[in-house]
Nucleic acid binder design. Structure first.
Lengths: 243, 243
DNA sequence: AGTTGCATCTCGAGC
DNA sequence: GCTCGAGGTGCAACT
Protein backbone atom coordinates (compact mmCIF):
# COMPACT_ATOMS: atom_id res chain seq x y z
CA UNK A 1 0.00 0.00 0.00
CA UNK A 2 1.32 3.39 -0.87
CA UNK A 3 1.81 6.13 1.69
CA UNK A 4 -1.33 8.18 2.22
CA UNK A 5 -1.21 11.93 1.93
CA UNK A 6 -2.68 13.67 4.96
CA UNK A 7 -4.74 16.85 4.77
CA UNK A 8 -3.22 19.75 2.86
CA UNK A 9 -4.43 23.33 2.88
CA UNK A 10 -3.32 26.30 0.81
CA UNK A 11 -4.09 29.77 2.16
CA UNK A 12 -6.41 28.34 4.79
CA UNK A 13 -8.51 30.53 7.06
CA UNK A 14 -7.54 30.66 10.75
CA UNK A 15 -10.40 28.30 11.57
CA UNK A 16 -9.35 25.82 8.90
CA UNK A 17 -5.74 25.94 10.08
CA UNK A 18 -6.71 25.39 13.70
CA UNK A 19 -8.89 22.46 12.68
CA UNK A 20 -6.09 20.80 10.72
CA UNK A 21 -3.49 21.35 13.45
CA UNK A 22 -5.85 20.22 16.20
CA UNK A 23 -6.69 17.05 14.32
CA UNK A 24 -3.02 16.45 13.50
CA UNK A 25 -2.06 16.75 17.16
CA UNK A 26 -4.78 14.29 18.10
CA UNK A 27 -3.58 11.87 15.41
CA UNK A 28 0.12 12.12 16.35
CA UNK A 29 0.84 13.46 12.90
CA UNK A 30 3.86 15.45 11.79
CA UNK A 31 2.45 18.93 11.18
CA UNK A 32 3.96 21.63 8.98
CA UNK A 33 2.93 25.24 8.65
CA UNK A 34 4.31 27.99 6.49
CA UNK A 35 3.38 31.60 6.84
CA UNK A 36 4.04 35.02 8.24
CA UNK A 37 4.42 34.90 12.01
CA UNK A 38 5.99 36.26 15.15
CA UNK A 39 7.66 34.07 17.75
CA UNK A 40 8.15 34.51 21.47
CA UNK A 41 10.13 32.19 23.69
CA UNK A 42 10.62 32.17 27.42
CA UNK A 43 12.42 29.57 29.48
CA UNK A 44 16.14 28.90 29.82
CA UNK A 45 16.51 32.24 28.07
CA UNK A 46 14.08 34.75 26.56
CA UNK A 47 13.67 35.71 22.92
CA UNK A 48 11.40 37.56 20.58
CA UNK A 49 11.28 37.43 16.81
CA UNK A 50 9.37 39.97 14.74
CA UNK A 51 7.23 39.27 11.69
CA UNK A 52 8.57 37.18 8.83
CA UNK A 53 7.91 34.10 6.70
CA UNK A 54 8.89 30.87 8.46
CA UNK A 55 8.42 27.14 8.32
CA UNK A 56 7.05 25.53 11.46
CA UNK A 57 7.18 21.81 12.23
CA UNK A 58 5.37 20.09 15.09
CA UNK A 59 6.52 16.53 15.68
CA UNK A 60 4.44 13.80 17.30
CA UNK A 61 7.07 13.44 20.03
CA UNK A 62 6.39 17.00 21.16
CA UNK A 63 9.27 18.76 19.43
CA UNK A 64 8.67 22.09 17.69
CA UNK A 65 10.92 23.75 15.12
CA UNK A 66 10.76 27.22 13.58
CA UNK A 67 12.97 27.63 10.53
CA UNK A 68 13.82 30.76 8.60
CA UNK A 69 15.31 30.76 5.11
CA UNK A 70 18.83 30.62 6.53
CA UNK A 71 20.90 28.33 8.68
CA UNK A 72 20.92 24.72 9.61
CA UNK A 73 19.58 25.48 13.07
CA UNK A 74 16.01 26.54 13.79
CA UNK A 75 15.66 30.16 14.87
CA UNK A 76 13.35 29.00 17.66
CA UNK A 77 12.44 25.56 18.90
CA UNK A 78 11.10 23.42 21.68
CA UNK A 79 12.55 20.02 22.61
CA UNK A 80 10.71 16.70 22.45
CA UNK A 81 8.24 16.12 25.27
CA UNK A 82 6.38 19.42 24.98
CA UNK A 83 2.64 19.89 24.82
CA UNK A 84 1.48 21.60 21.66
CA UNK A 85 -1.77 23.54 21.45
CA UNK A 86 -3.46 25.59 18.74
CA UNK A 87 -6.05 28.32 19.06
CA UNK A 88 -7.60 31.16 17.12
CA UNK A 89 -7.26 34.51 18.87
CA UNK A 90 -8.52 37.71 17.27
CA UNK A 91 -8.61 36.09 13.84
CA UNK A 92 -5.00 34.90 14.10
CA UNK A 93 -3.73 31.36 14.56
CA UNK A 94 -1.64 30.88 17.69
CA UNK A 95 0.46 27.78 18.19
CA UNK A 96 1.89 27.22 21.64
CA UNK A 97 4.34 24.62 22.90
CA UNK A 98 5.16 24.19 26.57
CA UNK A 99 6.95 22.02 29.06
CA UNK A 100 7.38 22.22 32.80
CA UNK A 101 10.89 21.01 33.67
CA UNK A 102 12.42 23.35 33.00
CA UNK A 103 9.50 25.72 32.50
CA UNK A 104 9.63 26.77 28.88
CA UNK A 105 7.09 28.10 26.46
CA UNK A 106 7.09 28.94 22.79
CA UNK A 107 4.36 31.03 21.23
CA UNK A 108 3.95 31.40 17.47
CA UNK A 109 1.45 33.95 16.22
CA UNK A 110 0.51 33.75 12.54
CA UNK A 111 -0.76 36.79 10.78
CA UNK A 112 -1.06 34.74 7.61
CA UNK A 113 -0.88 31.01 6.97
CA UNK A 114 0.20 30.11 3.45
CA UNK A 115 0.24 26.37 3.84
CA UNK A 116 -0.69 23.77 6.43
CA UNK A 117 -0.33 20.00 6.29
CA UNK A 118 -0.40 16.94 8.51
CA UNK A 119 1.53 13.80 7.65
CA UNK A 120 1.26 10.30 8.95
CA UNK A 121 4.81 9.08 9.59
CA UNK A 122 6.09 5.51 9.60
CA UNK A 123 9.81 5.13 10.06
CA UNK A 124 11.21 1.81 11.23
CA UNK A 125 14.79 2.37 10.07
CA UNK A 126 17.64 3.37 12.32
CA UNK A 127 20.59 5.44 11.21
CA UNK A 128 23.81 3.52 10.72
CA UNK A 129 26.82 5.75 11.34
CA UNK A 130 30.53 5.01 11.07
CA UNK A 131 33.56 7.13 11.77
CA UNK A 132 32.68 7.89 15.38
CA UNK A 133 34.87 7.94 18.46
CA UNK A 134 33.50 4.52 19.31
CA UNK A 135 34.80 3.22 15.99
CA UNK A 136 38.21 4.70 16.76
CA UNK A 137 38.19 2.89 20.10
CA UNK A 138 37.42 -0.44 18.41
CA UNK A 139 40.20 0.15 15.98
CA UNK A 140 42.67 0.58 18.84
CA UNK A 141 41.37 -2.38 20.81
CA UNK A 142 41.82 -4.49 17.68
CA UNK A 143 45.39 -3.31 17.31
CA UNK A 144 46.78 -1.60 20.44
CA UNK A 145 50.15 -1.15 18.75
CA UNK A 146 48.55 1.74 16.88
CA UNK A 147 48.95 3.71 20.12
CA UNK A 148 52.46 2.46 20.73
CA UNK A 149 54.28 -0.88 20.59
CA UNK A 150 53.29 -3.20 23.43
CA UNK A 151 50.52 -0.96 24.73
CA UNK A 152 48.04 -3.11 26.66
CA UNK A 153 44.45 -1.92 27.11
CA UNK A 154 43.03 -3.05 30.46
CA UNK A 155 39.64 -1.32 30.49
CA UNK A 156 37.41 1.09 28.62
CA UNK A 157 35.30 3.76 30.26
CA UNK A 158 37.19 3.15 33.50
CA UNK A 159 35.82 5.52 36.09
CA UNK A 160 38.03 7.96 37.97
CA UNK A 161 37.18 10.73 40.45
CA UNK A 162 37.29 13.09 37.45
CA UNK A 163 35.17 11.01 35.11
CA UNK A 164 35.51 7.97 32.88
CA UNK A 165 38.66 7.54 30.76
CA UNK A 166 38.26 6.25 27.21
CA UNK A 167 40.98 3.60 27.42
CA UNK A 168 42.89 2.64 30.55
CA UNK A 169 45.94 0.44 30.16
CA UNK A 170 49.66 0.04 30.69
CA UNK A 171 52.79 0.38 28.64
CA UNK A 172 55.71 -1.95 28.05
CA UNK A 173 57.26 -0.89 31.39
CA UNK A 174 54.07 -1.50 33.34
CA UNK A 175 53.28 2.20 33.73
CA UNK A 176 49.65 3.24 33.84
CA UNK A 177 48.44 4.84 30.59
CA UNK A 178 45.34 6.97 30.11
CA UNK A 179 44.18 7.34 26.51
CA UNK A 180 41.72 10.05 25.47
CA UNK A 181 40.16 9.61 22.04
CA UNK A 182 38.84 12.25 19.66
CA UNK A 183 37.42 11.56 16.24
CA UNK A 184 38.60 14.88 14.85
CA UNK A 185 41.26 17.54 15.24
CA UNK A 186 41.38 18.71 18.85
CA UNK A 187 41.85 21.98 20.66
CA UNK A 188 42.76 22.95 24.22
CA UNK A 189 39.59 21.50 25.74
CA UNK A 190 40.63 17.92 25.00
CA UNK A 191 43.99 18.51 26.66
CA UNK A 192 42.25 19.80 29.76
CA UNK A 193 40.07 16.73 29.78
CA UNK A 194 43.00 14.32 29.53
CA UNK A 195 44.89 16.32 32.14
CA UNK A 196 41.98 16.01 34.59
CA UNK A 197 41.93 12.24 34.20
CA UNK A 198 45.69 11.89 34.65
CA UNK A 199 45.64 14.09 37.73
CA UNK A 200 42.72 12.23 39.26
CA UNK A 201 44.36 8.85 38.67
CA UNK A 202 47.66 10.00 40.10
CA UNK A 203 45.89 11.08 43.28
CA UNK A 204 43.71 7.98 43.32
CA UNK A 205 46.52 5.49 42.91
CA UNK A 206 48.96 7.71 44.84
CA UNK A 207 51.86 5.43 44.16
CA UNK A 208 55.15 6.84 42.96
CA UNK A 209 54.93 5.67 39.37
CA UNK A 210 53.81 8.42 37.05
CA UNK A 211 50.63 8.11 35.00
CA UNK A 212 51.10 8.69 31.29
CA UNK A 213 48.43 10.53 29.32
CA UNK A 214 48.08 10.02 25.58
CA UNK A 215 45.75 12.00 23.36
CA UNK A 216 44.75 10.07 20.25
CA UNK A 217 43.22 12.16 17.46
CA UNK A 218 43.79 12.92 13.78
CA UNK A 219 45.64 16.14 14.67
CA UNK A 220 45.97 18.94 17.24
CA UNK A 221 45.98 22.72 17.10
CA UNK A 222 49.14 24.63 18.00
CA UNK A 223 47.76 25.76 21.31
CA UNK A 224 46.70 22.25 22.23
CA UNK A 225 50.18 21.01 21.38
CA UNK A 226 51.73 23.61 23.69
CA UNK A 227 49.39 22.64 26.49
CA UNK A 228 50.24 19.00 26.00
CA UNK A 229 53.94 19.79 26.30
CA UNK A 230 53.44 21.90 29.42
CA UNK A 231 51.55 19.15 31.15
CA UNK A 232 53.86 16.38 30.01
CA UNK A 233 51.18 14.66 27.95
CA UNK A 234 51.63 12.87 24.66
CA UNK A 235 49.93 12.83 21.29
CA UNK A 236 49.40 10.06 18.76
CA UNK A 237 47.91 10.82 15.36
CA UNK A 238 45.20 8.37 14.40
CA UNK A 239 41.90 8.63 12.56
CA UNK A 240 38.69 6.70 13.00
CA UNK A 241 38.25 4.00 10.36
CA UNK A 242 36.78 5.50 7.21
CA UNK A 243 34.54 2.57 6.23
CA UNK B 1 0.02 42.44 -0.49
CA UNK B 2 -0.44 39.08 1.10
CA UNK B 3 2.17 36.37 0.96
CA UNK B 4 1.92 34.27 -2.19
CA UNK B 5 1.69 30.52 -1.99
CA UNK B 6 4.26 28.77 -4.13
CA UNK B 7 3.59 25.59 -6.07
CA UNK B 8 2.15 22.70 -4.09
CA UNK B 9 1.90 19.12 -5.26
CA UNK B 10 0.20 16.14 -3.64
CA UNK B 11 1.36 12.66 -4.70
CA UNK B 12 3.30 14.10 -7.62
CA UNK B 13 4.98 11.90 -10.20
CA UNK B 14 8.79 11.80 -10.20
CA UNK B 15 8.84 14.13 -13.18
CA UNK B 16 6.51 16.61 -11.52
CA UNK B 17 8.56 16.53 -8.32
CA UNK B 18 11.81 17.08 -10.19
CA UNK B 19 10.24 19.99 -12.03
CA UNK B 20 9.04 21.67 -8.86
CA UNK B 21 12.34 21.16 -7.03
CA UNK B 22 14.40 22.28 -10.00
CA UNK B 23 12.34 25.43 -10.36
CA UNK B 24 12.47 26.06 -6.60
CA UNK B 25 16.25 25.78 -6.59
CA UNK B 26 16.44 28.23 -9.49
CA UNK B 27 14.14 30.65 -7.66
CA UNK B 28 15.97 30.44 -4.33
CA UNK B 29 12.83 29.09 -2.73
CA UNK B 30 12.53 27.10 0.47
CA UNK B 31 11.62 23.62 -0.71
CA UNK B 32 9.89 20.92 1.32
CA UNK B 33 9.35 17.30 0.43
CA UNK B 34 7.62 14.55 2.33
CA UNK B 35 7.75 10.91 1.37
CA UNK B 36 9.30 7.52 1.70
CA UNK B 37 13.04 7.67 1.11
CA UNK B 38 16.51 6.34 1.86
CA UNK B 39 19.43 8.57 2.80
CA UNK B 40 23.15 8.14 2.35
CA UNK B 41 25.80 10.49 3.67
CA UNK B 42 29.53 10.52 3.20
CA UNK B 43 31.96 13.15 4.42
CA UNK B 44 33.22 13.84 7.95
CA UNK B 45 31.68 10.45 8.73
CA UNK B 46 29.59 7.96 6.80
CA UNK B 47 25.96 7.01 7.33
CA UNK B 48 23.12 5.13 5.75
CA UNK B 49 19.45 5.24 6.57
CA UNK B 50 16.98 2.67 5.28
CA UNK B 51 13.48 3.33 3.95
CA UNK B 52 11.03 5.42 5.96
CA UNK B 53 8.78 8.48 5.82
CA UNK B 54 10.70 11.73 6.30
CA UNK B 55 10.44 15.45 5.86
CA UNK B 56 13.11 17.07 3.72
CA UNK B 57 13.84 20.79 3.62
CA UNK B 58 16.15 22.50 1.15
CA UNK B 59 16.98 26.08 2.08
CA UNK B 60 18.00 28.81 -0.37
CA UNK B 61 21.31 29.22 1.49
CA UNK B 62 22.26 25.65 0.57
CA UNK B 63 21.32 23.91 3.80
CA UNK B 64 19.50 20.58 3.68
CA UNK B 65 17.59 18.92 6.52
CA UNK B 66 16.10 15.43 6.78
CA UNK B 67 13.71 15.02 9.70
CA UNK B 68 12.08 11.87 11.02
CA UNK B 69 9.07 11.86 13.34
CA UNK B 70 11.32 12.04 16.38
CA UNK B 71 13.91 14.35 17.82
CA UNK B 72 14.77 17.97 17.60
CA UNK B 73 17.80 17.25 15.45
CA UNK B 74 17.63 16.18 11.82
CA UNK B 75 18.62 12.56 11.22
CA UNK B 76 20.73 13.73 8.28
CA UNK B 77 21.65 17.15 7.03
CA UNK B 78 23.97 19.30 5.01
CA UNK B 79 25.22 22.69 6.18
CA UNK B 80 24.59 26.02 4.41
CA UNK B 81 26.71 26.56 1.32
CA UNK B 82 25.98 23.26 -0.38
CA UNK B 83 24.90 22.72 -3.96
CA UNK B 84 21.56 21.00 -4.27
CA UNK B 85 20.55 19.03 -7.35
CA UNK B 86 17.51 16.96 -8.28
CA UNK B 87 17.20 14.19 -10.85
CA UNK B 88 14.95 11.33 -11.85
CA UNK B 89 16.75 8.00 -11.92
CA UNK B 90 14.92 4.76 -12.70
CA UNK B 91 11.57 6.38 -11.97
CA UNK B 92 12.71 7.61 -8.55
CA UNK B 93 13.44 11.15 -7.45
CA UNK B 94 17.00 11.67 -6.21
CA UNK B 95 17.99 14.80 -4.33
CA UNK B 96 21.69 15.39 -3.82
CA UNK B 97 23.51 18.01 -1.79
CA UNK B 98 27.26 18.47 -1.92
CA UNK B 99 30.11 20.66 -0.80
CA UNK B 100 33.84 20.51 -1.31
CA UNK B 101 35.54 21.75 1.88
CA UNK B 102 35.29 19.40 3.52
CA UNK B 103 34.11 17.00 0.83
CA UNK B 104 30.63 15.94 1.87
CA UNK B 105 27.68 14.58 0.01
CA UNK B 106 24.13 13.71 0.92
CA UNK B 107 21.93 11.58 -1.31
CA UNK B 108 18.20 11.20 -0.74
CA UNK B 109 16.37 8.62 -2.84
CA UNK B 110 12.58 8.80 -2.83
CA UNK B 111 10.58 5.73 -3.58
CA UNK B 112 7.42 7.76 -3.08
CA UNK B 113 6.82 11.48 -2.79
CA UNK B 114 3.67 12.37 -0.87
CA UNK B 115 4.04 16.11 -0.95
CA UNK B 116 6.27 18.72 -2.52
CA UNK B 117 6.19 22.49 -2.16
CA UNK B 118 8.31 25.57 -2.81
CA UNK B 119 7.92 28.72 -0.74
CA UNK B 120 9.09 32.24 -1.34
CA UNK B 121 10.57 33.50 1.93
CA UNK B 122 10.84 37.07 3.13
CA UNK B 123 12.23 37.50 6.61
CA UNK B 124 13.67 40.82 7.65
CA UNK B 125 13.47 40.30 11.41
CA UNK B 126 16.37 39.35 13.63
CA UNK B 127 16.06 37.30 16.76
CA UNK B 128 16.37 39.23 20.00
CA UNK B 129 17.74 37.01 22.75
CA UNK B 130 18.44 37.72 26.42
CA UNK B 131 19.86 35.60 29.17
CA UNK B 132 23.15 34.84 27.43
CA UNK B 133 26.65 34.80 28.83
CA UNK B 134 27.15 38.21 27.26
CA UNK B 135 24.23 39.52 29.32
CA UNK B 136 25.79 38.09 32.46
CA UNK B 137 29.02 39.90 31.63
CA UNK B 138 27.18 43.20 31.24
CA UNK B 139 25.48 42.62 34.55
CA UNK B 140 28.85 42.25 36.27
CA UNK B 141 30.44 45.20 34.51
CA UNK B 142 27.49 47.30 35.67
CA UNK B 143 27.99 46.16 39.25
CA UNK B 144 31.37 44.48 39.86
CA UNK B 145 30.52 44.06 43.55
CA UNK B 146 28.36 41.13 42.47
CA UNK B 147 31.60 39.18 42.09
CA UNK B 148 33.01 40.47 45.36
CA UNK B 149 33.31 43.81 47.13
CA UNK B 150 35.81 46.15 45.47
CA UNK B 151 36.42 43.90 42.47
CA UNK B 152 37.70 46.03 39.60
CA UNK B 153 37.28 44.81 36.01
CA UNK B 154 40.17 45.93 33.82
CA UNK B 155 39.43 44.18 30.55
CA UNK B 156 37.09 41.74 28.85
CA UNK B 157 38.22 39.07 26.43
CA UNK B 158 41.81 39.71 27.47
CA UNK B 159 44.01 37.34 25.54
CA UNK B 160 46.38 34.93 27.28
CA UNK B 161 48.59 32.17 25.87
CA UNK B 162 45.75 29.80 26.71
CA UNK B 163 42.95 31.83 25.18
CA UNK B 164 40.85 34.88 26.04
CA UNK B 165 39.52 35.30 29.57
CA UNK B 166 35.98 36.58 30.03
CA UNK B 167 36.81 39.26 32.60
CA UNK B 168 40.28 40.25 33.70
CA UNK B 169 40.61 42.47 36.75
CA UNK B 170 42.02 42.91 40.23
CA UNK B 171 40.76 42.58 43.77
CA UNK B 172 40.88 44.93 46.74
CA UNK B 173 44.48 43.91 47.47
CA UNK B 174 45.63 44.48 43.89
CA UNK B 175 45.82 40.79 43.07
CA UNK B 176 45.08 39.72 39.52
CA UNK B 177 41.67 38.10 39.12
CA UNK B 178 40.48 35.94 36.23
CA UNK B 179 36.71 35.54 35.96
CA UNK B 180 35.14 32.81 33.84
CA UNK B 181 31.43 33.21 33.12
CA UNK B 182 28.84 30.54 32.43
CA UNK B 183 25.17 31.20 31.84
CA UNK B 184 24.12 27.92 33.41
CA UNK B 185 25.16 25.26 35.90
CA UNK B 186 28.67 24.11 35.16
CA UNK B 187 30.58 20.85 35.21
CA UNK B 188 34.26 19.90 35.25
CA UNK B 189 34.95 21.34 31.80
CA UNK B 190 34.45 24.91 32.97
CA UNK B 191 36.88 24.37 35.85
CA UNK B 192 39.47 23.07 33.42
CA UNK B 193 38.96 26.12 31.26
CA UNK B 194 39.40 28.56 34.15
CA UNK B 195 42.39 26.59 35.36
CA UNK B 196 44.06 26.89 31.95
CA UNK B 197 43.66 30.66 31.97
CA UNK B 198 44.98 31.04 35.51
CA UNK B 199 47.97 28.84 34.75
CA UNK B 200 48.76 30.68 31.55
CA UNK B 201 48.55 34.08 33.24
CA UNK B 202 50.75 32.97 36.15
CA UNK B 203 53.41 31.89 33.68
CA UNK B 204 52.91 34.97 31.54
CA UNK B 205 53.16 37.48 34.38
CA UNK B 206 55.58 35.26 36.32
CA UNK B 207 55.63 37.55 39.29
CA UNK B 208 55.25 36.17 42.78
CA UNK B 209 51.70 37.32 43.42
CA UNK B 210 49.20 34.57 42.84
CA UNK B 211 46.48 34.86 40.22
CA UNK B 212 43.00 34.28 41.55
CA UNK B 213 40.47 32.40 39.43
CA UNK B 214 36.76 32.89 39.99
CA UNK B 215 34.06 30.89 38.27
CA UNK B 216 30.79 32.79 38.03
CA UNK B 217 27.72 30.67 37.23
CA UNK B 218 24.30 29.89 38.67
CA UNK B 219 25.62 26.71 40.28
CA UNK B 220 28.22 23.93 40.00
CA UNK B 221 28.10 20.15 40.07
CA UNK B 222 29.75 18.27 42.95
CA UNK B 223 32.64 17.13 40.80
CA UNK B 224 33.25 20.63 39.54
CA UNK B 225 33.25 21.91 43.12
CA UNK B 226 35.86 19.33 44.09
CA UNK B 227 38.02 20.27 41.14
CA UNK B 228 37.73 23.93 42.06
CA UNK B 229 38.91 23.17 45.58
CA UNK B 230 41.83 21.07 44.37
CA UNK B 231 43.04 23.81 42.10
CA UNK B 232 42.47 26.60 44.60
CA UNK B 233 39.84 28.28 42.48
CA UNK B 234 36.72 30.06 43.68
CA UNK B 235 33.04 30.08 42.83
CA UNK B 236 30.45 32.84 42.90
CA UNK B 237 26.80 32.04 42.27
CA UNK B 238 25.21 34.46 39.84
CA UNK B 239 22.65 34.17 37.08
CA UNK B 240 22.29 36.07 33.84
CA UNK B 241 19.61 38.76 34.02
CA UNK B 242 16.22 37.17 33.44
CA UNK B 243 14.60 39.43 30.86
C1' DA C 1 40.55 29.16 5.92
C1' DG C 2 41.81 27.85 10.75
C1' DT C 3 41.08 28.56 15.79
C1' DT C 4 38.47 29.29 19.88
C1' DG C 5 34.54 29.03 22.86
C1' DC C 6 29.29 29.75 23.39
C1' DA C 7 24.77 27.35 22.84
C1' DT C 8 17.50 27.91 25.05
C1' DC C 9 23.28 23.49 22.43
C1' DT C 10 20.90 18.12 21.71
C1' DC C 11 21.47 13.39 22.69
C1' DG C 12 22.48 9.09 24.97
C1' DA C 13 24.34 6.44 28.82
C1' DG C 14 25.09 5.80 33.53
C1' DC C 15 23.68 6.42 38.14
C1' DG D 1 15.85 13.19 37.88
C1' DC D 2 21.02 14.81 37.39
C1' DT D 3 25.71 14.27 35.47
C1' DC D 4 28.95 13.78 32.02
C1' DG D 5 30.89 13.75 27.54
C1' DA D 6 30.22 13.03 22.29
C1' DG D 7 28.65 15.37 18.17
C1' DG D 8 29.08 14.65 10.72
C1' DT D 9 27.80 19.21 16.67
C1' DG D 10 26.38 24.61 14.44
C1' DC D 11 27.70 29.22 14.90
C1' DA D 12 30.02 33.82 15.33
C1' DA D 13 34.05 36.39 16.19
C1' DC D 14 38.65 36.90 15.36
C1' DT D 15 43.24 36.10 13.24
Amino acid sequence: MSTEAGPQLVHPTPAETAMLVGQGLADDALITLFGRCRVEYDGRATSTLGPGDRHVMLKPDGAALVHTDEGQQPVNWQPPGCEHTVAVESETVVVESERSTPAESLRITFEAVVHAAAFDVTDASELSLTGTESDLRERILDDPDLVEPAFTPLATERSTPAGAVDIYGEDDDGRTVVVELKRRRVGPDAVGQLSRYVGALERDLHDDTEVRGILVAPSVTDRARELLAEKGLEFVSLEPPGE
